[in-house]
Structures are given as C-alpha cells and as structure tokens.
Amino acid sequence: MSDYKTLSVADVSVGDKLPELDIDITSGLIVGGALATRDFEPVHHDKSVAQAAGLPDIFMNILTSQGLMSRFVTDWSGPEAIVKSLDVKLGAPNLPGMVMTVAGEVTACDAEAGVVDIAVTGENNIWGMHMQGSVQIVLPVEG
C-alpha cells in the first residue's frame, strides 16, 4: 500500500502550499467533463449555442470544475483523506485554449480531529479567476 501515501494531520501546517496544477482547457476536456457528469446542457458541447449565449466557444460545466478541485486536493492529501465539503465561488468561464492554474493553501488544521481546510483557486490565463473556494477534508490523525 506504500504506493499511495496519505498525509497524516501531523504532516500539515497552516500556510502549507499545495503543488500547483496546470490544466489545459481543451474542447475534449470540456465535452468529456460534461458527459462524465451527465450534463447535456448544449452550452457545454455545442459551440453555436454557446455563441448565442454570448461566449466565443463552449465552456466548462460546474460539475467538472468541482471534480477538478476535488482531484487537486486529494492528489496532495492521498486516498485515505475523506472529503467533507467543496465550497466553490464561480468566476470567469473556462474555454478551449486557456490554461487553468490551480493553487491551494492550508488555512486551518485541527490536529485532534484531523480536519483540514484548504483554500483553492483556479485561475485561467485569459480571463482570470475561474473558481475560488475551500475544501474541507479529514486526514488520519496518526500516520
């Protein structure tokens, strides 16, 4: 099981930064994300509908953004972490051709309960903040 390490709460301190993650926003990711979350709203797969809605191209659905935020945190924490909440403030849309940089920082850490809060931002390189929020996880209290 050593292949998959999970952080213990003792490994974590307020102010710790998570490794940044760059995500290429492609049509494939947007359409694939919409399908994998069973979101068939046409703005996520039909460019002409997205353009009628005032955007130049299809854009990422919210469930994909949530999925990427969750993945970003558990990539860092390891698989035994239990995700307790995802609280996302939505900003500029993610469109094909953009790159979203996801960053995170530990903002609270309860060593006894193992509860860790992480502030996460996902900023795309064209229009800025795509998502901003916090993720709460529970880590094992002993390694």
């Binding site: 694939g32 969750s70 035994e80």
Partner: peptide, 25 residues
C-alpha cells in the same frame, strides 16, 4: 471510471479494488 478518466483523478479509493479492500474504508 469515466469520471476519473476525464478529471485525471488517480485516487485508488475510487477505482482500485485491491487497494481499497485493504484501506481503512
């Protein structure tokens, strides 16, 4: 699995039965 493929999420808690069987869960 369709979801984890797109998200690029390799968390074994979701897809690795063998690992999961011996995990805390």
């Amino acid at each position: 699995r369709h979801w984890t493929e797109v998200m690029g999420d390799n968390n074994p808690a979701y897809t690795d039965m063998e690992w999961a069987a011996s995990s805390r869960r």
